[in-house]
């Protein structure tokens, strides 16, 4: 098993930044430290009038530190909306959401940006790598956004790319990589700044079955750590085995949560 040690000074910088955001809110609010995410009654409506769509109708969800939680459910049930809110890129209409001991409601626009930069890693369905940047440069981007110097950012990026098995393709452009390789670069990018929450929206749906499994295997092996939570939105029942728990959504609500081992009936 590959163990990814965060670069020491990167970690220190990060901690300083995190403290800068909220101090130690969790203690004052009495939040539970073993929970990475705690959502209560989250609602979200898109549009107005006739075009109104109620995407979330009161979601309650808890995600523990160290677990890989899969979010499943039919198309349009609100999975993407929910993780967008958890990742602080979308604001809910009502309800509360505490992520990594930060109450998102109380963050200003720029604090939210800062929070995302430091605390969240993203993996997208369409990879969304910057086409003009090499693999190393792409992976270094989150660190650069956090103000780490280029030299150190790229050194760290190389390390993470090696961990996901792309040590040979460090200076390849996205267009020169296969889909599976691009998604591995994306995983490396999501891990580079050692975030405590990683959100993945349908990370395997643009990959063939074998590559998808391979990718989940890497995500679990490299990404999972006791102080980090992973949320993976998926349609793909064949990767349920990589989940610690599976939350099933329907029509804007989480209707069922099962342990990964007991997910047989969901397939």
């Amino acid at each position: 098993m590959v163990i990814l040690e965060p670069v020491e000074d990167v970690a220190r910088e990060k901690m300083e930044q995190e403290q800068h955001i909220t101090g130690n809110v969790s203690d004052t609010l009495g939040l539970r430290h073993d929970l990475a995410v705690r959502c209560r009654g989250v609602t979200k409506t898109y549009g107005t009038g006739d075009a109104k769509v109620m995407a979330l109708r009161g979601v309650d969800l808890e995600i523990r530190c160290g677990e890989l939680l899969m979010l499943a459910g039919p198309s349009g049930c609100g999975k993407t909306t929910l993780i967008s809110i958890i990742a602080a890129i979308l604001e809910p209409d009502s309800g509360m959401c505490e992520v990594l001991a930060h109450d998102l409601q109380h963050l200003s626009q720029s604090e939210r940006a800062h929070f995302r930069g430091v605390a969240i890693g993203f993996v997208f369905q369409l990879f969304n790598l910057l086409p003009a940047l090499t693999a190393v440069e792409n992976v270094a981007v989150p660190l650069l956004i956090n103000g780490v110097s280029r030299r150190r950012a790229e050194a760290r990026a190389r390390e993470v790319l090696e961990a996901v098995g792309l040590g040979e393709r460090l200076s390849a452009l996205p267009a020169q990589l296969s889909g599976g390789q691009q998604q591995r670069v994306a995983i490396a990018r999501a891990l580079a700044h050692d975030p405590k929450l990683i959100v993945c929206d349908e990370p395997t749906s643009n990959l063939d079955h074998e590559t998808g499994r391979n990718m989940m295997e890497i995500l679990r092996r490299v990404g999972r750590s006791p102080d980090r939570a992973l949320i993976v939105v998926t349609h793909d029942t064949r990767i349920y085995e990589f989940a610690d728990r599976i939350a099933r959504m329907e029509d804007g609500k989480v209707v069922e949560i099962v342990e990964g081992a007991e997910s047989e009936h969901l397939r």
Binding site: A87, I89, S110, A113, H114, F115, R116, G117, V118, I120, F122, F124, N128, L130, P131, V141, P142, I145, N146
Partner: peptide, 16 residues
């Protein structure tokens, strides 16, 4: 724009 959106999601501030 999509690339800027990705950067924005990853925490790039307006100033950046």
């Amino acid at each position: 724009l999509k690339q800027y959106a990705v950067l924005k999601a990853m925490g790039a501030t307006s100033k950046l």
